[in-house]
């Protein structure tokens, strides 16, 4: 399995009236072909901004990618011209968004919207594109696709709209599908349908997936690897089973302790993470999590730890070894 995407030192900032927002602060990660990477974190941790940076979809101004590289099939996405990146976007790398209600155009039919990418990237004519659109809708299990292809988005339910978004994302056989909280706006039974669908399609097509979510449960059932983000940094990165069986960063531990599990035996008290995430304009000098951290030592308040390997394919950015050993 080769490396599909290699991100090095990605740094994105927003220059606002109130000051510089440090949204993504130099992150590194790799993604293999056919792999599913989960990026987990809370609002404002930089998980969406980091993938939007890869797609070069950061609104500028106020945003700017101030540093880093992102190698995809031998080319740096961040250095491409506007025209080059447009040929990648929606073609080799596709993206689906959180809110299927607002990411579809309400005045165009489903056919017009899905066909657009087919005509643009694959040079199909209208008739071919329509035929392929119907196939794609069937692939994402939209019943009666041949008739519903001329419907407008408002005639579809939330779950079906997200299926249309997925169909659109898959239309050009991408190598990488980026899904930014695609099920957050959906009900849990519909979420299960969508996750099931993406898993099956991944098997059929063999694409890699980056799945962004705040839900540790969703990631557990879906991802091969997980990156946990906090305040614009990746604080822990591991294979999915190691992440849950042997979490090493206090923030990951905190997240796991603060969610009730459906299969928990009895009513145990939750352990919340006290305090609030830091202000991204005025970041503390040391580890961004230190003010909320139960394990924090003096060093944490002064020096920000780098992501370092602690076990096989498992790296953590923390001065303290939470397992009790000395580092």
């Amino acid at each position: 399995m080769g490396t599909l995407l290699q991100v090095k030192g990605l740094k994105t900032q927003f220059f606002t009236q109130d000051g510089v927002v440090n949204a993504v602060n130099g992150i590194d990660f790799d993604l293999n072909e056919g792999e599913t990477l989960g990026i987990v974190g809370e609002s404002g941790c930089g998980k969406s901004v980091s993938v939007l940076s890869l797609m070069r979809l950061i609104p500028s101004p106020p945003g700017r990618i101030v540093g880093g590289e992102a190698w995809f099939q031998g080319r740096d996405l961040l250095k491409m011209s506007e025209e080059e990146i447009r040929s990648v976007r929606g073609n080799k790398i596709a993206m689906i968004f959180q809110d299927p209600m607002t990411s579809l155009n309400p005045v165009l039919t489903i056919n017009q919207q899905v066909s657009e990418a087919l005509e643009l990237h694959l040079g199909m004519d209208k008739r071919q594109a329509r035929k392929r659109t119907i196939e794609l809708l069937e692939m994402v299990r939209i019943p009666d696709a041949a008739n519903r292809v001329d419907d407008y988005p408002h005639q579809f339910s939330g779950g079906m709209r997200q299926r249309v978004m997925i169909a659109m994302g898959l239309s050009c056989n991408p190598q990488l599908l980026i899904a930014d909280e695609p099920t957050t706006a959906l009900d849990v039974t519909i979420q299960a349908q969508i996750i099931d669908l993406v898993k099956q399609l991944k098997k059929e097509i063999g694409m890699a997936v980056i799945w962004i979510t705040h839900d540790l449960g969703v990631v557990a059932g879906l991802a091969d690897r997980v990156n946990v983000m906090y305040a614009g940094y990746i604080v822990e990165s591991a294979d999915v089973k190691d992440m849950y069986a042997d979490p090493r960063h206090p923030y990951t531990l905190g997240l796991l302790g603060s969610i009730p599990r459906l299969d928990a035996e009895r009513k145990a008290k939750l352990t919340p993470i006290e305090g609030l995430p830091p202000d991204l304009i005025d970041m503390p000098p040391g580890c961004p999590f230190a003010p909320r951290c139960r394990y924090a030592i003096d060093r944490c308040l002064e020096e920000n730890p780098k992501l370092e390997t602690v076990a096989r394919r498992h790296s953590v950015a923390c001065w303290v070894d939470v397992t009790g050993g000395k580092r």
Partner: peptide, 26 residues
């Protein structure tokens, strides 16, 4: 169905779980 659709934050448990996927919408 609702119970089976709720994700559990544990990859080992998730691997073994059987999901009842409901068809269609409310």
């Amino acid at each position: 169905a609702l119970l089976s659709a709720v994700p559990i934050p544990d990859p080992v448990v998730e691997e073994k779980r059987k999901r009842i996927i409901l068809v269609g919408d409310v």
